[in-house]
Structure formats: structure tokens, C-alpha cells
């Protein structure tokens, strides 16, 4: 089977999520990549070095600059005459474009796959991860989004694939990019962080969140996350949210501070290698999934921990 992987990038850097998607695609067959952007030569270069891939298609065109689904979907649909499957990282960009491609191809997409069970058979989470469905596609082409945390990352170096330019389709003229307001942070991005420190509603307000969670994260070089309750209460912006409705993460170490462990939060972090929970309430559900639990007042325990590290 010939597969095409949509490369996650910001025209400058190759996104980490690409690597897990390559691994998923390689289980189906030959892997080609598509870099769609503008001035994205460096990304294409980086993509060509990923181990085990066949070819990198590059659509370097103003119409692709912001990866608007209206412009990218027809481009991919066109490339699918030569490919049997297209796989997207389940990032917001991937999730935005993939179903539009599926519609153009008259294919039922398979979202957020966790494993490849056969050429046309995959597992995927449903009901906020409370159940895992094994599904088999009967479509001629496959359109798939891949949960990054479920697959190992392909080696980013070692390959030397051919880079081939493809013509972009024209700007569809229906949508335009206005602006982006991206959170600037010195801290690692959540979906690729090795350690994550997350805060919950017990943090009381944004100042307390800042004073308790951030110093610990900085000591550990960790990314910072939050429960939906903490986001809803306005302690931190939404892009901190870990959970079914936020980001799905699986770091080496996940430290949950003052998070009770609602199902929807657990759905976003339960694949972490080691989970550490600090909570005052010893019956908090978070302790049912934590590898190491500390029942303590976070206002004492966390600063003490930060100071001792």
C-alpha cells in the first residue's frame, strides 16, 4: 500500500507529531510525505531526513502558507490518485483538513487511531476514551488521523528521500488567514514535553497557579498543563487544557497537582508513563491511576518539593 503522510509544520520547523504518524503509516506500506506551505524548504529538507520514507512531495505556494483546509484539501485529493491512504497527525490542523479530504474522496475517515491491526483495520477511542473500537474500512482509499501518543516516533534522521515539487491548487478564494495569536512559552510544548506539571481547580486563581505550578515546572524543565476545571475557572488559557476536550498527552512523567481526576481529564493523560498526584482528598479518583500519590495540602507540599529539587 502506498501511503501519504501530511507533515505538521509552521513553514520553519517540522512538527514532532509527524514522526508518530510516519510510524503508523509505515505499518501500512510505503510512506510518502507531503509538505504543504510557503517558504517551507527547510521543512522539506528535514522531512527528507526522516528514516524509512520514500519521497517528499512539496507544495510550496502562497495558497498553502496558512494550511487553510479549503486550499489544501483539493491538493491532497489530487495526490490520492497515486496513493492508497493518507494519514494526518491528529493536531488541530490535521483534524481540520482530513475530513474535508475524505469528503472530496467520498471516504469515511477513521479518526484518531491508536493502532494498526491490519491493512484496513484500526483501533480508535470512542466515548472519551471509555471504550476502544476496532473498525474495518470498506472504502477504496483510507483517510486517517493518528493519535501521536499511541505510536513511537520514527527516527528524525537517517533518511535521504527525494524531494519532488507538486503544483498547488489555486487559492479557493473562500477563506483567508487574518492573524494568529500563539502562546509564547519558553517551556516545552505539551504534546512533546517529557515531563508535564498540571494544575487543577484547587489552585484557586491564576496568581496561585502561577506561584505554585510554574516554579515546579521550571525546576523540572516541564511543560505546564491544566484540567478543564482550571481552564473554565480562568486560571490559564485553553491551550493548557489536558483532557478529552483539550490535548491528549503521554509524557514520561505527569504530575497532577490539585486535580481530582474527572474522567474527561484522565482521558487526556492516562497513557503517561508515570503519573504522580498530589491532592488533599485521599479519595480523589486521580489516585486510582497514579503510580505515586501524595495526600497533602498542595500549598505546603508543592513549594517544599520545588525547593528541594
Amino acid at each position: 500500500m502506498k501511503t501519504l503522510v501530511y507533515v505538521a509544520h509552521d513553514n520553519v520547523h517540522l512538527g514532532d507529531a509527524t514522526l508518530a504518524t510516519v510510524t503508523a503509516a509505515s505499518k501500512l506500506g510505503e510512506v510518502h510525505l507531503l509538505v504543504a506551505g510557503a517558504g517551507c524548504g527547510a521543512v522539506a529538507e528535514a522531512a527528507s531526513r526522516i528514516a524509512g520514507i520514500g519521497k517528499v512531495h512539496v507544495a510550496d505556494d502562497a495558497a498553502c502558507e496558512h494550511q487553510l483546509a479549503e486550499n489544501i484539501a483539493p491538493l491532497i485529493a489530487g495526490l490520492m490518485t497515486d496513493h492508497d491512504a493518507v494519514l494526518f497527525p491528529a493536531t488541530t490542523t490535521g483534524k481540520n483538513i482530513a475530513p474535508r479530504v475524505a469528503a472530496l474522496l467520498d471516504v469515511m475517515q477513521i479518526s484518531d487511531i491508536l493502532s494498526v491491526e491490519g491493512e484496513r483495520t484500526f483501533t480508535r477511542p470512542i466515548y472519551a476514551g471509555n471504550a476502544i473500537a476496532t473498525v474495518e474500512s470498506s472504502d477504496a482509499k483510507l483517510v486517517i488521523t493518528v493519535r501521536g501518543t499511541a505510536f513511537d516516533k520514527a527516527e528524525a534522521e537517517g533518511g535521504a528521500a527525494e524531494i519532488a515539487a507538486v503544483a498547488s491548487t489555486d487559492d479557493a478564494g473562500k477563506s483567508s488567514f487574518v492573524s494568529a495569536e500563539l502562546a509564547k512559552s519558553e517551556r516545552p510544548e505539551l504534546t512533546s514535553a517529557k515531563i508535564i506539571v498540571s494544575g487543577g481547580r484547587a489552585l484557586k486563581d491564576s496568581a496561585t497557579f502561577e506561584n505554585i505550578v510554574m516554579p515546579l515546572a521550571d525546576k523540572l524543565g516541564a511543560g505546564v498543563g491544566a484540567s478543564r476545571a482550571a481552564v473554565d475557572a480562568g486560571y490559564v488559557p485553553n491551550d493548557y487544557q489536558v483532557g478529552q476536550t483539550g490535548k491528549i498527552v503521554a509524557p514520561e512523567v505527569y504530575i497532577a497537582i490539585g486535580i481530582s481526576g474527572a474522567i474527561q481529564h484522565l482521558a487526556g493523560m492516562k497513557d503517561s508513563k508515570t503519573i504522580i498526584a498530589i491532592n488533599k482528598d485521599e479519595d480523589a479518583p486521580i489516585f486510582q491511576v497514579a503510580d505515586i500519590g501524595l495526600v497533602a495540602d498542595l500549598y505546603q507540599a508543592v513549594p517544599e518539593l520545588t525547593a528541594a529539587l
Partner: peptide, 26 residues
């Protein structure tokens, strides 16, 4: 277009240990 072959419970994560204090956590 998709046939659901099976629906199962996700793997259950076992609860670990509780530590007594910050020192033990460290």
C-alpha cells in the same frame, strides 16, 4: 463504510503507591 468489529474496555491503569511525605516523593 466502517464496520465495527469489536468494542472493548480500555486497558485499566492500576493504582500505585501512596508516599507519606514530600521527602519520600523526592
Amino acid at each position: 463504510r466502517l464496520k465495527t468489529l469489536n468494542v472493548s474496555e480500555p486497558p485499566v491503569r492500576q493504582a500505585g503507591v501512596k508516599v507519606a511525605d514530600v521527602d519520600e516523593l523526592i
